[in-house]
Design a binder for these strands. Structure first.
Length: 249
DNA sequence: AAGATGATCAACCGCTCAGGC
DNA sequence: TGCCTGAGCGGTTGATCATCT
């Protein structure tokens, strides 16, 4: 799409062409990234610096990972979002090769879709309970390949389907922010340990006083296991699931 | 077969912040 | 101190594709 205006303001918008991609990649390969506005001019691109930066970071970078979000990644997204909210870039640091845009899109399309199906807000406590007591245990089952989900749940600090109902009914307060934080801490700790046996400090403090890892160096190896890929088109929730959940709201 | 509807995701926009002058 | 620029973040939009009727 062309933008009308003076010669110097003849900026392009919309989808990038192959030629533009090549020009950007070639320029960065030779000159490196940064100073995006001048980079755009020197590379001969009629794009804003912002647009070039976004295209590079979200699409052209060689280490960008594309494809389905794995159950492990979904689990970690749920955990980290419950902790930090919509801090997408912060969350994305735990997913080597994934962009904040991709994680944000996943959340908006998949997670918020389920909240909508349940007729509740994705930020509501009700939905957080569903994620904690139903969604995450199911993801753990997937990760465990249908094996011992209970032991996996203990390891990851997530309620199993069998225990969740009892716990939720007997003690609703357990799912308050304070109650969740204990479980969440354990879960993120465990996930971080799983993904990053030798974490690199980034200066962020966990509640326990230990430093968070900055980027999990072994996560890519773990997450790249093809057998862990989420089957295309398969959804976590069946129509029956939705109906049953709706009865509880 | 065709139009309607929904889902996905690339790209844009507005805003904030940091650093240099 | 204030202004400018670069960089980054989160929210939103719109094009495209898939599915449904």
């Amino acid at each position: 799409m062309e933008v009308h205006g003076s010669e110097e303001m003849e900026l392009r918008r919309g989808p990038w062409t192959t030629e533009e991609d090549l020009a950007l990649m070639n320029y960065i390969a030779v000159n490196g990234e940064g100073k995006w506005n001048s980079l755009a001019r020197r590379a001969g691109l009629r794009r804003t610096g912002k647009s070039c930066r976004l295209r590079w970071l979200n699409y052209l970078r060689p280490d960008v990972r594309r494809g389905n979000i794995t159950p492990e990644e979904q689990l970690l997204i749920l955990e980290l979002h419950s902790r930090w909210g919509n801090r997408w870039s912060k969350i994305a640091r735990y997913f080597p090769g994934r962009t904040d845009n991709e994680i944000k899109n996943y959340w908006r399309t998949r997670v918020q879709k389920h909240a909508k199906q349940l007729k509740c807000d994705a930020d509501s406590q009700q939905f957080k309970d569903v994620m904690r007591y139903l969604w995450m245990p199911r993801l753990l089952e997937r990760i465990g390949g249908g094996g011992s989900s209970t032991s996996a749940a203990v390891e990851f600090g997530v309620a199993t389907p069998a225990t969740a109902e009892t716990e939720a009914k007997s003690s609703p307060e357990n799912s308050t922010a304070a109650g969740s934080s204990t479980t969440t801490t354990t879960t993120v700790d465990s996930l971080s340990a799983q993904f990053s046996p030798q974490p690199v400090s980034c200066g962020l403090m966990q509640p326990g006083g230990e430093l968070w890892p900055e980027s999990p160096p072994t996560a890519l190896d773990f997450l790249d296991m093809e057998q862990m890929m989420w089957p295309a088109g398969e959804d976590l929730w069946s129509a029956d699931d939705i109906w049953l959940l709706q009865q509880q709201f």
